[in-house]
Nucleic acid binder design. Sequence first.
DNA 1: GAGCACTGC
Length: 836
Amino acid sequence: MTGENRIDKLRKLSRQTYLHNRKRKKLSSLEDELRDYVYIFEGVKLTQAEERELSYKKEIYELAKEHFVEENTDEYKMPDAYDIDGAINQEKRFSVANRRRRDTEAVEMMKFFAELDAWEEHQKGKSTLKFGSQDGKNAAEDYNYVFEDQIDFVQLSGIDEEPSEAESGSISRGLMEERKTLPIYSFRDELLHAVNDHQVIIIEGETGCGKTTQLPQYLHEAGYTKQGMIACTQPRRVAAMSVAARVSHEMGVKLGHEVGYSIRFEDCTSEKTVIKYMTDGMLLREFLGEPNLSSYSVVMVDEAHERTLSTDILFGLVKDIARSRKDFKLIVSSATLDAVKFSEFFDGAPIFRIPGHRFPVVPYYTRVPEADYIGAAISTVLKIHVTEPLGDILLFLTGQEEIESVDGMLKERTRGFGTKIAELIICPIFANLPTELQAKIFEPTPEGARKVVLATNIAETSLTINGIKYVVDPGFCKTKSYNPRTGMESLVVNPISRASANQRAGRAGRTGPGKCFRLYTEYSYKHELEDNAVPEIQRTNLANVVLTLKSLGIHDLVNFDFMDPPPSEALLRALEQLFALNALNAKGELTKTGRRMAEFPLDPMLSKMVVASDKYKCSEEIVTIAAMLSVGNTIFYCPKDKQVHADNARMNFNPGNGDHIALLNVYNAWKEMEYSTQWCYENYVQVRSMKRAHDIRDQLEGLLQRVQIDIRSNPSDLDATKKAIASGFFPHAAKLRKDGSYRTLKNPQTVYIHPSSGVVRVHPRWLVYNELVLTTKEYMRQVTDIKPEWLVEIAPHYYHLKDVDDPAIKKMPRGQGKPALWQWNSQIKMGRVGMR
DNA sequence: GAGCACTGC
């Protein structure tokens, strides 16, 4: 090494020392900034922007801290800035090994802080720095860490990320390097040519091939974003968020600038945004405001094989756009073998197959069909635990009840073994499990122990658990189906599809080779299971779909280009219902009410209720009820062991005024307690559901202004609120019969009040219900008593006086129709009700 | 006096 070279090198090193010191200062100032921020906002409810800012600050600080390791400071004191002579002297005293170590350190530090600078520049909005182009290799390594940290952070804040769809492969080290090792990279040019030559292409790529993160970037690099944005739709919110975060890191831009995401309640985009990840439902909503999607040049429908309601509708709509806009490009990406079907639907669009890198999973089948799959599942889990090498187990079950009982049985069975076998940690997970208990499955398994995760379908697509090596698949799941003739929903246990079986098995091969124990025969797998599950559009109430399509100006629904058309009976039923609600006129066109209703992201009967609240001057109350109802029946948490308490708590909100008013009471009580989490625990109310209701309520309130409905409250007049409810739900009216059952007025059938209802013993003579579910009986869930004359008053086109004429009313003994409510209340307070 | 698969707007 010549002297000059040596000095150059030292000069460089000394500059790095200077940098190091500067960065150290920066680190401490970051720390101060963060501390201030936390301090200022302590105890204050943050706005979304503040929340984002805070998490950004935390992220930056954590990153800086993580990488700012001052190792070897004892042996090596950093020379002062620009002190070249000092540096040379220091240098002389150093051994080769130490020098090398320090060199590496310095280079790494440099890389990291170069990145930190870039981030900061962005924060100030001063410049755009793209690592992909010039300094890719250097920046790359640390970006890898950035992502890992990011995910940790996401997990810590309780968000279940979905890295498998985000192509989280951490096999290679450098970021640019990593991008290049993704299977999709070798198809880059080919894909770009194909997109150039064809308007629609189908991508069939396995998990981990890089399609979700890379393709939009390739298109951006190729200049497609000059004419408009690239949209990439995801079926789930977290996926949209985490993929957007990943891509913004890869591109070296701040999330929300060039790369952003848009989901309900949260729009993280700006005027700069060119790549936009969004939920499919969100793109559908955007159609309403921009029917030809003119601000987009490319739409990529990702995870199309999941066939959500929204993707299925999007298919028909974007196919139409592709015909009218020649500059528009469409990419449909799917993971399974039904790409041919997509291609046929899109007039023979070319298909690209991109391999993924996944570890092999060996399937095992039972020799004969299992009669008792629960028993079989438990013995399989125990067998794995005793005979197979360490690695966590994932067992798929159908619901909460099953999970809880298997949990108990496994605990009992393992107790007998004592210390003869390794510890088996049992982790239940299902969507209704409170978040703090859900977090348990992400805790790493202790040395020498084994974890068994008992999960519903939630683990099939929505969340990924690392370290799973064995999957036990009994082959069943619960699915919702809808009978358009009776308007009844039911939740039944069905065999899964082959696609699901493969998806479940794949969960064992994420971090290494795995095994999948299927509790059915190979013959069943090959010949009895359906290829794919029935798409949602064929087994759901279509009222909302029809309203959306109508407000897009699509009138001929029977000939709408559905990939799998829904049963025509379901379409007719939906049209009928919208007509009854006065959302459509006799010609099938939207009315003014219908247009207002379409603004709300609610089921049509709920949105009708909201629109009608204007007339009864109780929009404040109705919006709360609508928000609570659209959260679903997960407001109350009911652990098995505390059922009595939970039941009592629930009944306290229901002084016999009907379940809708009870929901209103719950919300208002929570509001009164300043949205306290503690209050929720005390009253067996799910915190998560309440927060969600709060968000929905805010959104609905905003939309009320949009359709010019004033927010007015009328707390003293319950009848007004009930009338507004009836204005939406009058098609769901039922009348008491002598034996305590009910008869629905239209499409007469015998139904019962659900036992969880607060008025199950009150037996109101007339009522409206929110939904009809078929379980052990035909149950009405969420009911409210009404006066029969309201029906004629509210819906004279639907009910006539003779429908509500009620000769039985005179024959009823006094008090039967209207029991003493105070008595009911006192029973609740004394804790008698709910006990047996 | 019974039961809540999972998403999404």
